[in-house]
């Protein structure tokens, strides 16, 4: 399932958009060292981190989208950087576990 369809079906907020790719994996984490070394390509990355470094890491790992969980909103610097780099940033009300279950069910990952 593509990112736009996931956002619509799961009712996620859309903070910024990019290339509408298929979500092929999932990864949950907040420590950037873990994410950069472990998150698979084309994953949905679920996190509660909302600072600007999240955008740099997302570009380096080539994730399909970032999902900010627990109603976390991107800070101004993250929102600006994600928009300029063309990175999908979505927002979920659920906690990381709950959102991961939704992504798994909807995307079959």
């Amino acid at each position: 399932m593509n990112v736009s369809e996931l956002a619509a079906k799961a009712n996620y907020r859309i903070y910024s958009q990019g290339e509408d790719r298929a979500v092929e994996h999932g990864y949950c984490g907040d420590f950037l060292s873990n994410i950069i070394s472990r998150a698979p390509d084309s994953c949905a990355w679920l996190t509660v981190m909302n600072n600007v470094n999240v955008a740099a890491v997302a570009t380096l790992i080539d994730c399909a989208c970032i999902i900010l969980c627990e109603k976390v909103e991107p800070d101004a610097a993250l929102a600006a950087r994600a928009a300029s780099l063309g990175i999908w940033v979505l927002g979920a009300d659920e906690d990381v576990f709950g959102a991961a279950k939704q992504v798994a069910a909807l995307c079959g990952v």
Binding site: S33, N51, N53
Partner: peptide, 16 residues
């Protein structure tokens, strides 16, 4: 609190 400081940077650099 910014997501750094896991202490995995140098080990990751070595590993990769």
């Amino acid at each position: 609190s910014l997501g750094f400081g896991a202490g995995m940077g140098l080990p990751n650099m070595k590993k990769y």
